[in-house]
């Protein structure tokens, strides 16, 4: 149990030399340093073009971009920390936007019901994902790709165009902002803080790190690993559902086509860009938020500079690959000090 709990950051105790705790914080700090560097470089480039990156419009643009991806990436972080993966998030998001808009159907009284129905449906998809992975022992990649495709078939067949209508009050979620900060970004950050607290302070959060670090050791330590993975998948799907609500609020209606945004793979990219280890057990939501911000800043800067989409994609791809290569290198050098299970369980 101690070994498993030690997977969680902060509980690692004062480390002798280079330990995992300092490593993790180091990576998160590195991501934020990268974010600042990209902001500075971006601001200089934009200024050279005679514009201001920090004008109200541009800040709103950056924050608005980040909130949609942010919701999904926060959920994705939880499943990736468990050494799992969720490729169905884009379809969950699209389904939830439709469910919310159709249940509300323009009536103020149905707003809570619409939100509940959408998030409930998302939770069911997450539950199915988790059960297929843990009980049927289907690889997470295939399981979530499969549920995603099932949803895609349903969406393509039932919804040729937009459907449903949200209420004016609900649209505030998409458009209200406090000075430069959109309400959706605030909600995203609140969710992120809740996620960080969940991972650091609660038993369930520590279990997620333990399961991702080594499922067998976690099970031998008395953790119900299946339950942990299912919980993470439910939370991930619900986070994608919140993204769906945001879509509905922005569009004023539900849209099936939003699954085409490619947010499933992009959220995974944001998570690993934020320093979370794709093989589970290391990383956290704070880093993910920075990863999301980096992608949003890049998008905004490219848009202002009217960069050719080709270079945009190339640069994005390169940044993600380089970042992960750097993290991998750091892990290699950190490995000798990781003698947690020296000569022990294998």
């Amino acid at each position: 149990m101690t070994a498993a709990v030690r997977e969680a950051p902060k509980t690692a105790g004062p480390p002798p030399g280079r330990s995992r705790g300092s490593f993790r914080i180091g990576t998160t700090a590195l991501v934020y340093a990268a974010l600042v560097a990209i902001l500075v470089v971006g601001a200089v480039l934009v200024a050279a073009d005679g514009k201001n990156l920090f004008s109200t419009g541009n800040i709103v643009d950056m924050l608005t971009r980040s909130s949609l991806l942010g919701f999904i990436a926060i959920g994705q972080t939880l499943v990736i920390l468990c050494r799992s993966l969720d490729l169905s998030v884009g379809y969950v998001m699209a389904s939830c936007s439709l469910i919310a808009a159709m249940v509300m159907n323009g009536s103020e009284a149905n707003v809570p019901l619409g939100i509940g129905a959408a998030l409930g449906a998302a939770a069911v998809v997450g539950l199915v994902n988790g059960l297929v992975i843990t009980k049927l022992k289907v690889n997470a990649f295939i399981a979530t790709l499969g549920t995603g495709l099932i949803l895609k078939g349903w969406l393509d067949t039932e919804f040729a165009g937009p459907a449903g209508k949200v209420t004016a009050s609900f649209q505030q979620f998409g458009y209200t902002r406090v000075s430069v900060v959109p309400l959706s970004t605030v909600v995203m950050l609140v969710l992120a803080v809740a996620g960080v607290l969940y991972l650091r302070k609660t038993r369930g959060g520590h279990h997620i790190y333990a399961v991702g670090g080594d499922t067998d050791v976690a099970r031998l330590s008395g953790i119900r690993t299946d339950r942990t993975i299912v919980t993470a998948h439910i939370l991930c799907a619900v986070a994608a559902g919140v993204a769906g609500l945001l879509i509905a609020a922005r569009f004023g209606t539900g849209s099936a086509l939003v699954y085409d945004y490619g947010l499933d793979l992009e959220s995974i990219a944001a998570v690993v860009l934020g320093g979370t280890y794709l093989m589970g057990g290391r990383g956290g939501i704070a880093g993910t938020v920075a990863g999301v911000m980096i992608l949003a800043v890049l998008d905004t800067v490219f848009n202002i500079l009217e960069v050719n989409p080709f270079y945009k994609d190339v640069l994005r791809g390169a940044i993600i690959v380089v970042a992960v290569a750097i993290y991998a290198r750091r892990q290699l050098s950190a490995r000798p000090s990781r003698v947690r299970f020296a000569g022990g369980a294998s």
């Binding site: 990649f141 793979l265 995974i268 990219a269 690993v272 794709l278 093989m279 050719n308 989409p309 080709f310 270079y311 945009k312 994609d313 190339v314 994005r316 791809g317 390169a318 993600i320 690959v321 992960v324 290569a325 991998a328 290198r329 290699l332």
Partner: peptide, 27 residues
């Protein structure tokens, strides 16, 4: 080479490559 020498998980490597190639198609 990126997957094996730089130790980047192949799902990320090939995702990056996918972005680059999609960009190339658009260009």
């Amino acid at each position: 080479l990126i997957t094996t020498l730089l130790k980047v998980p192949s799902i990320i490597t090939t995702l990056g490559m996918m972005l680059v190639l999609f960009g190339a198609i658009r260009l």
